[in-house]
Simulated scan of single mutants.
Amino acid sequence: MVRVHPDSPISGPLVSWGNAWLAGHTGLDAAVDRVERAGGPQIVAEPGAERPLRAVLAELRVEGMTALRLALPAAGDPLGLTGPAAFTMAAVDAGQAVTAVLPGRCVGLVPAPDRRGSSYAGIRWTAMDADPAPPDVPALAEAEHALTGAMRAAAEALAGVDGPPAGRPRLGGDEGLAPGYPARAHRVAALAARLAAVLAAAGERGVTSRQLATSGAALRELDRAVRRARVAAHNAVLEPRHAAGER
Rank of each mutant, 00 (worst) to 15 (best):
D7Q: 11
S16V: 07
S16G: 03
W17G: 01
N19S: 10
W21I: 13
W21N: 10
A23P: 07
A23L: 14
A23H: 13
G24R: 13
G27K: 04
G27P: 03
L28G: 08
L28F: 09
L28V: 12
A30M: 09
D33C: 08
R34I: 00
Q42L: 07
Q42Y: 09
Q42I: 06
I43G: 06
P52V: 10
L57S: 08
V62A: 11
M65K: 00
A71R: 12
L72S: 02
L72N: 02
P73Q: 01
P73R: 00
A74G: 12
D77K: 09
D77R: 13
G80P: 07
T82V: 01
P84V: 02
P84S: 04
A85H: 12
A91G: 04
A94I: 02
A94G: 01
Q96N: 03
V98Y: 13
V98T: 14
D114F: 14
R115D: 09
R116D: 14
S118F: 13
S119T: 13
Y120W: 14
Y120S: 07
G122Q: 00
I123L: 10
A127W: 03
M128A: 05
D136C: 01
P138V: 03
A139E: 15
A139V: 14
L140R: 00
L140M: 01
E144P: 06
E144N: 12
H145A: 05
H145L: 01
A146C: 02
A146H: 13
G149K: 06
A150V: 12
A155M: 06
A155S: 12
A157Y: 12
D162V: 11
G163A: 13
P164C: 08
P164A: 15
G167D: 11
L171R: 15
D174P: 06
E175R: 15
L177A: 07
Y181A: 00
Y181F: 10
P182N: 03
P182R: 03
A183G: 12
A189C: 04
A192H: 06
A193T: 09
A196H: 11
A197C: 05
L199D: 05
A200P: 07
A200H: 14
A201P: 02
G203A: 07
E204T: 13
G206W: 11
G206A: 09
G206M: 11
T208Q: 08
R210S: 11
R210N: 06
G216H: 02
A218D: 05
R220L: 14
E221Q: 04
R227H: 05
R227M: 07
A229D: 00
R230P: 03
V231S: 01
A233G: 05
H234T: 09
P240Y: 00
P240T: 00
R241T: 15
R241V: 15
A243H: 06
A244W: 06
R247P: 11
